[in-house]
Design a protein around this nucleic acid. Structure first.
Length: 817
DNA sequence: AGAGTGCAGGTTTTT
DNA sequence: CCTGCACTCT
């Protein structure tokens, strides 16, 4: 837009532009006909079926911009839901870019969770919470559930904390509570009865702590709307245009929330809000207020969150739920080359029960997909590192490359090789900064200040740093609090009557004083605004005066230095927060911290290769993409095999990965993979067979690695710089001669045919003392045989390279003599 | 109360 | 393999 600063003047009849302007023309520039339709259609309900890379974000932002430009909506009447905070930030930026900063003021663009927190903070007092409520992350609720499972001795009935937590989460996503579940469950089963008890206790504990867990944020908002129609009406009046991205991954609770918001008013406007009667006289056109308009965007082929309750039917049955809904299909892809799209189409077409949809592009075939099979996961990682290196030399920026994997544990091998190769990389979501113990401790201090009702937080910091407070003292405090009818937090103020030793008394009194001082700093008395820096300063007061930092500094544990650094970083985060939110309170800070997700901290990834799970990759795109571990039992994951719809969801996940790539796509796998310290044999993923052979250029196909006398492992090559064997492990110089590395080979030989069988020595009989010959290591003598069946391992002392462990079943070995 | 040792168990994906 | 946990000892 040419004039980004033009504000919409509230209260003026005229728009920001003269009548002769045709802003829509600008907004529609460069869009294809269906995209235009998606921007300009007006009606109660619109479903945009947007294939991968079809420009849906662009369409969504322009649709919002067009509503604002045409004066069809005030910014405050718009509610846009995205999947991550990062996506929300980007969408806000793009809308601002289109209509100007001021014209975008007041829009709600956020995740479901953030939007619900905002609503709940405003309305909490309506149903027994305060606006200072805490948000429990999965770790917090697991800790609570663990305690309850113990109390109820539920483990005797096979109820593990993890199982209970999963079940509660699932039920909440279905909007069930303990009571409604009890009605449908088989209550003659004692395990069920105990589960119901735990569920009910858990919910009571949350209420008492003035806390919501993740699932509650949505479910309780729905409950609020249903129980208090006049509250729901406030938001129905306010949000006239609701837009939901990634609709295929919404669960039932989220669906219900949107449904509530798009209902007509429960009471004619102008009457009885808050029973004040204030609005009776100024409500023209009152009862004609129609339901809000709803726009949803999604692609059922990219639904990958069924495991956490996402219901694909929300999108497939949209037309039934919203009769008269308009449907627009976006099939033209603006991201990837045709080869990549052909592979994606080929794979996804194996899912039955889906509407046929084919992505297409007019940018041309592009490069072929590159395939590589490593001997081990390190071998695989080495290939990835080498290819990244040559892409970089060819001018591709590191930030435009990404490596995906199915499970987080796969990142380790990649990381090792990347460090050795001096490649800058960033692992998204792997680190879990906010799950570190010291960070959780620091946050618990803040929670203890912001929400003194949160007993879990106070208990957590009771003896951190060590104050000599153990179980006995903790129980004494709890009893005293119960006897006096005060909170656990307030009980700390009376340490002298607990009947504990003087040293412990002093410790409690000191904790109480620190919390009080920080409270004064961060929660100024009525009406006054805390300075923007209050949170960062309060945090420093807490960490300093509680002795937490001193304890770490005095520690001998080398890890504690890293902990100190992490706490420094947290303080820096608080400062940064103050900079971005001059009026942000401690509660705002805790909210932001509680709702950050893995995909949100992509910001500083510039200049680095991004490593992430396939799930985290959703919604992102890169010039070059590596999908690693393309093996059976990994993708599709073995656990998915037993779950209904599991393999299909895995296929969609793979599809999501493939469609992230713009120019270059790599599939890599390893023939053996070590997990739990054990080596297992991996089979190529079935998804590879679903891709037409001529799309993939196998640098080293699974057949090469398996067949006897085939290509030597790069990892093995790497071990012998200059020809000789380097001995144990990888050396620091991992150069290998170019001549040893098989570069591109003809498709005729290495077509995308996965051999039906891998190399298999069967039950090759070996016993200590036998001599064998190995394709790479030469001759040696068997020292011992361990393991069973397919995992039998031969411990061999080779004449030239020393001791090695080999998987008998697949190692390229034969018995001699 | 706290430190240290042994053991079992767990690794799918996450707001 | 590695971690987290429970139990024991000081």
């Amino acid at each position: 837009m040419t004039d980004a600063s033009t504000p919409i003047i509230v209260g003026s009849d005229r728009g920001p532009r003269g009548a002769g302007d045709r802003p829509d023309n600008e907004l529609l520039e460069g869009l294809n006909p269906p995209q235009r339709e998606a921007v300009t259609y007006r009606g109660p309900a619109l479903l945009i079926v947007a294939g991968a890379g079809s420009g849906k974000t662009s369409v969504l932002t322009r649709r919002i911009a067009s509503l604002l430009w045409n004066r069809e909506a005030w910014p405050s009447q718009i509610l846009a839901i995205t999947f991550t905070n990062k996506a929300a930030g980007e969408m806000r930026e793009r809308v601002q870019h289109l209509v100007g900063d001021n014209a975008a003021q007041g829009m709600w663009i956020s995740t479901f969770h953030s939007a619900c927190v905002r609503i709940l903070r405003r309305e909490a007092q309506q149903f027994g919470f305060t606006k200072a409520f805490t948000i429990y992350d999965s770790g917090d609720s697991r800790a609570l559930i663990k305690r309850l499972v113990k109390e109820h001795e539920a483990d005797a009935f096979g109820l593990t904390p993890a199982a209970v937590q999963g079940k509660i989460s699932k039920l909440k996503n279905e909007l069930a509570d303990a009571e409604s579940y009890a009605r449908s469950a088989n209550m003659s089963d004692p395990a069920e009865r105990i589960f119901v008890d735990i569920f009910a206790d858990y919910q009571r504990a949350l209420q008492r702590a003035n806390a919501f867990d993740f699932d509650d944020l949505i479910a309780q908002t729905v409950y609020l709307f249903r129980a208090f129609p006049h509250v729901a009406d406030v938001y129905r009046r306010r949000f006239r245009h609701i837009l939901v991205d990634e609709y295929q991954d919404t669960n039932h609770a989220q669906y219900a929330l949107i449904h509530e918001l798009t209902q007509p008013l429960s009471e004619p406007e102008g009457e009885s809000y808050g029973d004040s009667g204030m609005m009776i006289f100024d409500a023209p056109a009152a009862d004609t207020l129609p339901a809000a308009s709803l726009t949803v965007v999604g692609d059922s082929d990219q639904s990958i969150y069924a495991f956490r309750g996402a219901d694909i039917r929300n999108i497939t049955e949209f037309e039934r739920d919203y009769p008269g809904a308009k449907v627009v299909l976006l099939e033209q892809n603006y991201r990837s080359t045709q080869n990549i799209l052909s592979a994606a189409n080929a794979v996804i077409s194996n899912n039955f029960d889906r509407k046929d949809k084919k992505l297409w592009t007019d940018v041309g075939a592009g490069e072929r997909i590159v395939g590589f099979t490593g001997y081990s996961q390190h071998d695989e990682a080495q290939f990835v590192a080498d290819e990244i290196d040559s892409l970089r030399r060819a001018g591709v920026d590191y930030s435009q490359m990404a490596v995906f994997y199915r499970t987080n544990s796969q990142s380790r091998a990649l990381e090792e090789i990347f460090i050795r190769s001096a490649l800058p990389y960033k692992i998204m979501g792997g680190t879990k900064f906010y799950e570190r113990a010291e960070i959780k401790d620091a946050l618990a201090y803040l929670v203890a200040v912001a929400n003194p009702a949160d007993e879990m937080a106070v208990r957590r910091i009771l003896n951190r740093p060590r104050r000599g407070i153990g179980d006995v003292t903790e129980t004494a405090i709890a009893r005293y609090a119960a006897d006096e009818g005060i909170t656990f937090r307030d009980a700390l103020a009376n340490s002298s009557v607990l009947g504990v030793g003087p040293k412990i008394q002093a410790g409690i009194a000191q904790l109480d004083a620190v919390l009080a001082e920080a409270s004064e700093h961060m929660l100024p008395a009525s009406g006054e605004l805390a300075p923007p820096t209050a949170v960062a300063e309060g945090l420093q007061i807490l960490l300093q005066k509680s002795g937490y930092l001193d304890a770490l500094r005095a520690s001998k544990d080398p890890q504690d230095e890293a902990r100190l650094e992490n706490l420094d970083e947290l303080v820096a985060v608080a400062r940064e927060f103050a900079r971005n939110n001059p009026e942000g309170t401690i509660i705002d800070f805790l909210t932001e911290v509680a709702l950050v997700s893995d995909a949100d901290d992509l910001e500083d990834a510039s200049g680095s290769v991004s490593l992430m799970t396939l799930h985290t990759a959703k919604g992102l795109e890169y010039d070059a993409v590596f999908i690693t571990g393309v093996e059976e039992d990994l993708i599709p994951h073995r656990i998915s095999a037993g779950e209904p719809g599991g393999p299909q969801e895995e296929r969609r996940l793979f599809y999501v990965g493939v469609t992230r790539a713009r120019q270059r796509l790599f599939f890599t796998l390893a023939m053996t993979r070590a997990q739990f310290g054990e080596v297992t044999v991996a089979m190529p993923s079935r998804f590879l067979q679903e891709i037409p052979a001529d799309l993939i250029d196998w640098r080293q196909s699974p057949g090469d690695v398996n067949s006897r006398g085939g290509t030597q492992s790069r990892a093995l090559n790497a071990r012998r710089p200059g020809g000789g064997f380097g001995g144990s492990g990888f050396g620091t110089s991992r150069r290998y001669g170019e001549d040893l590395v098989p570069k591109s080979t003809s498709i005729e030989r290495f077509a995308n045919r996965i051999p039906a069988k891998v190399r298999d020595n069967g039950d090759l009989a070996l016993k200590p003392g036998d001599r064998i010959r190995h394709d790479d290591f030469g001759e040696g003598r068997v020292d011992a045989i361990t393991g069973e069946g397919a995992k039998r391992v031969a411990h061999v002392r080779f004449d030239k390279v020393g001791a090695k462990k080999l998987l008998v079943k697949i190692a390229p070995i034969e018995k001699i003599g």
